[in-house]
Structures are given as C-alpha cells and as structure tokens.
Design a protein around this nucleic acid. Structure first.
Lengths: 186, 186
DNA sequence: ATAATTATAGTCAGTACTGACTAATTAGAA
DNA sequence: TTCTAATTAGTCAGTACTGACTATAATTAT
C-alpha cells in the first residue's frame, strides 16, 4: 500500500519532499498506517527509478540538497491501477495473543487473568480516546470527506469493540474454569 | 512471535527438523500465523547461534543431511521469558481497505459498491467455513485444550462478525449517499 | 516395471523495512 | 546574544522475510 499512499498524497497535496510526505502520512493516514521515515525514502527511490515520480534536486547555498518529488504521467496511471487493486479486499486477521493462549498451559493462570484484565482496561481507554478523536476530526473535516472518514472511524471502533467483547467474555470463561478446578481439587 | 512458536512446538512435540516444524505450524497454529518455510530455517539458525536450540546433524548414506533441533536449557528459559513478554498485549489493527476509502474520490462509486458487496459475500462464506472448522476441531481436541481453543476461535469469529457488520453498514451508507447525490443533481 | 507426481528437506539471492546515526535550520530561553 | 532544544532532511548498515530454486525419497498411476 505504501506506493499507493505516496502517489495519492503527492497527487492530492502537490509536490513534496520525503520529510513532508512523512508528515502528511502522520497527519492524514495515522489511523490506518504507520510508516517510518527511512521506509518513505526507500520507496521514493524505487518509485523514481520506476519512473512513477520525478525528482527535482535543488541545492541552495551551503544547505544540504533537498529533493522535491512530483508524480509523472506513468505514476498517475499507476496510482489508478494500485487503487483498483486495493479493491480486492482480503480480511485475514492475525492476533499474537492467540499464540499466547495456545501455549498458556506453561503460564500461571493468575498471570493470564491479570494481563487479560489489563487488556480490557487499555481497550476501554483507547476506545474513549478514539471516539473523542473521531468526533473532533469529523467536526473539522470538509463536507466531501465526511462520509468516508466516518466509515474508516466506524471500522476501527467496531473492531475495538469486538476485541473488548472478546476479552471480557474470555476473562469470564477463564475465571469460571479456575473456580471449577479449585472446587474439583477439594 | 516466531521464536516463541518454534520453542513452544519443540518443547511440546519433542525434537524436530525444520520441515517438520513447518508442518507443525501448519497443523497447530494455522489459525493465527502464516510462516513460510525459509523463515523457519532463518530463525532456527539464529536460535542455534544464540544457544537456544541444539542441532543434531545426521548424515545417513547418500541422503542429504538432516538437522534435528532440540531445545536447550537456555532455550527453555527463553521460552518462558518470551511467553511472559507476549502477555503485554497491544491491539492496534491496520486495515488496508481504509487506505482505499481515503482515496476513494478517485474511484467510480459503483466499483466501490461492487467490491464492498463482494467483500460481504466473501466474509459470509469465510464465517460459515470457520464455524464448521471450529466445531470439527473442538470435537477432536483433548479436553485440556478445549477452553483455550474455544477462546481463540471465538476471537476470530467475533472479529469476522465485526468486519461483516461494518461492511454491511458501510454499503448501506454509501448507497444512500449515491441516491442522495442523484436526487440533488436532478 | 517405470513414468509422473507429491512429499520431504533444504538453500540462496533479493526485497522490504527500520533503528541509529548525521547534520543543518529554526525557535525559544537565559 | 548565545546557548539549548526541537524541527527539518536525509543516509546507512543491519534485520527479517520470502519467492524461486535444487535435490532426493516415496507414492501413485499406467
């Protein structure tokens, strides 16, 4: 997705250099991607070599040279192509915590309960922050983008809520198992 | 998580070589990880260098040499350590489709609706298969592991259902927007 | 009996990513 | 004003991962 994001941002906000693109990613795409600065430069170089973007290097006085990138015609076609490809959605979640559970027989039951409990607290906090962030953003966004912004936020909120439900349900199940075991050993 | 998985599987199922570990990952952990074979060998070499596992290379006749790995004492400690680390859960979902939506003004509205619709169909199918798979697995699993297996399955099912709800809700929202736009342009 | 296919057991070169670093510029505090 | 901290702009070496490949063994089909 990274080349898609870079092309899209360059098309929407005009020519930028690497650092500015990283800033735009943070401002605009923070809710669904985390890309590190060297990764941006890595792709910019690749994309320039592929002819998708054009580099203007301007050396002003003693300053280190800056490179401003802009999308070429080939790049604009590529953006459309990548965007269409991205319509092939394939939802396949991977949760590290499932691995923890798989091997949880090597773990103290109480450690597992504690960490699940902490997970729940964190999720509740995150959800609160997310909902505030969502409302604030929606208040300051141009009308045209409100529908899609709303859809993206809803996406995250629903999954956070699903995670919370799961954690609460699992905690209860594990507590019951615990009680049951203790009763049996009596 | 990969070293944790490898150590855990070697401890649970005894010494194995790389290919067998890959098989075990497919059989046992398929629901929450996809690791490619060269990645397994990559980590085995690293872990041997770190003294976490011991290699027994046996060359039998003209056959290519096989390497059987077993967990060392250091490795057993490391497994416990990694398992405890894995209790620090940090849920932070990333959905590529959000990027598609962010740039969806460059897309035909009908293409977006079609692909959301396809997404819904795929999710319904996946959920059906998942629930059958879940029931079958639970029927053939030792009693001790049933609770955790159930928790892991429930985790996936809840998130698939959340994704489905989101897709359905979003499709309806987008359809309404479409109708609204058409009415306005009249 | 033997050819074709699948399973077993790996290797290697190349891609993708990022932590840690450098270095100039600007803003703010003392 | 001059020192400090933060921001801007980028590089580089190292880690993690995997597609494509090799090669033997076992199984199945003909």
């Amino acid at each position: 997705m990274i080349p898609l994001y870079i092309l899209g941002l360059l098309l929407r906000f005009g020519p930028q250099h690497g650092y500015q693109i990283k800033k735009l990613i943070e401002e605009q795409l923070e809710d669904f991607t985390q890309i590190k600065l060297p990764t941006v430069y890595y792709h910019l170089e690749k994309m320039e070599a592929a002819g998708l973007i054009l580099a203007n290097r301007d050396k002003q006085g003693a300053r280190p040279e800056k490179t401003v990138y802009q999308v070429s015609n080939t790049g604009e076609d590529k953006f459309k192509e990548l965007l269409h490809q991205s319509l092939q959605i394939n939802y396949r979640p991977i949760f590290d915590i499932d691995g923890t559970f798989y091997f949880s027989d090597s773990l103290d039951h109480s450690d597992l309960l504690d960490s699940l409990n902490q997970h729940i607290v964190n999720l509740e906090k995150t959800l609160d922050v997310l909902i505030i962030h969502c409302n604030e953003t929606l208040a300051h966004i141009p009308e045209d983008y409100k529908t899609t912004a709303n859809i993206i936020f809803k996406h995250h909120i629903l999954h956070y809520q699903a995670e919370l439900s799961w954690a609460e349900e699992s905690l209860n199940t594990l507590k019951e198992v615990n009680t049951h075991d203790k009763n049996e050993s009596n």
